[in-house]
């Protein structure tokens, strides 16, 4: 049976939900080997949370080179593993780091690369949603091993537990891979709320909040949702940049997206248009965001959100 490699997705020193999604997709294609590039001393502890049935082998590489040299180091090690294991495909999470690793790996292994897939079939056909979700594209890698990045939250992960075998390996990286040096890192501040790209529900606020995100956060909390923001809100310093949704922020595709006081500029839509359901609250009936709303309330978010929060809380209790 052919081997499929997935790169375990770490945020800070925590594994994300995306790792299980990658394993689920990879298991359709072949025997799954997870590559875990873990900081020295943390490999085995992290490996314990990767006991999925979908995974056959766990390849643990303890290294500090990724923390020190970033993308180039990860691509260097992965390419050595590709030479060793000869996989038919390598699946990686689709975000800045994952896409860049995929790009460099594609060059190193003379393979094609597809980014932002929302699904991959057993015969390695990748599905992408392009042009703001208006077109579905199916494509295939025609040379080398298929390097594909998968957009978080696009498929339902199979969390059934299993017992993968564990292999510990170590690798040297070349001098060229050490040319970038990371001198300090500040992981994003994580509140008690779910991670934006992993959440089932996202409630976002824009310029219409006028800097007061309290009603947005309260509604999000009643739903157990993540909080997002438009660029107008992050630029104004009302909410951290790590919560920006859009072309130059994060791409989210939750079950439900609630846009509050957001006009719906094309750059914002680029990051949320593939959400399953969209609810809009906006004072201006002409706001373009209404065009993509499944349910729109023309009204003031400071009136609508508190009532909706009360309603949800009442329903849940």
């Amino acid at each position: 049976m052919s081997t499929v490699i997935i790169l375990a997705d770490l945020l800070g020193s925590k594994l994300t939900k995306t790792t299980a999604e990658l394993a689920t997709v990879a298991a359709r294609i072949g025997e799954v080997t997870v590559v875990l590039l873990a900081p020295t001393g943390q490999g085995l502890a992290l490996a314990e949370s990767l006991n999925y049935e979908a995974v056959t082998n766990l390849l643990v590489v303890e290294t500090d080179s990724v923390a020190t040299h970033g993308v180039a180091a990860a691509a260097d090690i992965l390419s050595q593993i590709v030479d060793l294991k000869k996989p038919v495909a390598v699946l990686i999470a689709s975000h800045a780091f994952g896409k860049e690793v995929a790009g460099r790996l594609a060059v190193k292994t003379s393979s094609g690369v597809i980014t932002d897939a929302v699904d991959v079939s057993s015969d390695l056909i990748a599905t992408q949603l392009v042009f703001g979700g208006s077109t579905t594209v199916s494509s295939k890698i025609s040379q080398g091993c298929a390097i594909i990045t998968l957009r978080p939250n696009s498929i339902t992960a199979d969390l059934t537990q299993g017992k993968p075998s564990i292999e510990l390996l170590s690798f040297e990286i070349t001098a060229v891979s050490k040319k970038t040096v990371i001198t300090s890192a500040q992981p994003p501040v994580r509140g008690g709320r779910p991670e934006l790209t992993e959440a089932d529900i996202v409630v976002s606020g824009g310029r219409g909040t006028n800097g007061d995100f309290a009603p947005v956060e309260a509604f999000a909390d009643s739903l157990g949702a993540a909080v997002g923001a438009s660029r107008a809100a992050t630029d104004a310093g009302w909410y951290p940049h790590s919560h920006q949704v859009g072309q130059t922020g994060k791409t989210v595709s939750p079950q439900l997206y609630v846009a509050c006081g957001i006009s719906g500029a094309i750059q914002h839509r680029a990051g949320m248009q593939t959400s399953k359901a969209i609810i809009v609250i906006n004072k201006d009936p002409e706001a373009p965001i209404f065009e993509i709303a499944d349910f729109g309330v023309i009204g003031d978010l400071f009136d609508v959100l508190p009532k909706a929060t009360q309603g949800v809380t009442a329903l849940k209790s």
Binding site: I125, T135, T136, V137, S138, I141, S142, F295, V297, G299
Partner: peptide, 27 residues
């Protein structure tokens, strides 16, 4: 080419949503 597009299909536009004006009961 290292990757080839098999097909590209326009997705149906989002079905027209419901829109209400808040008269105190929007929430």
């Amino acid at each position: 080419a290292y990757s080839t597009v098999i097909d590209a299909i326009p997705r149906p536009p989002r079905a027209g949503g419901v829109r209400v004006t808040d008269d105190g009961n929007g929430g």
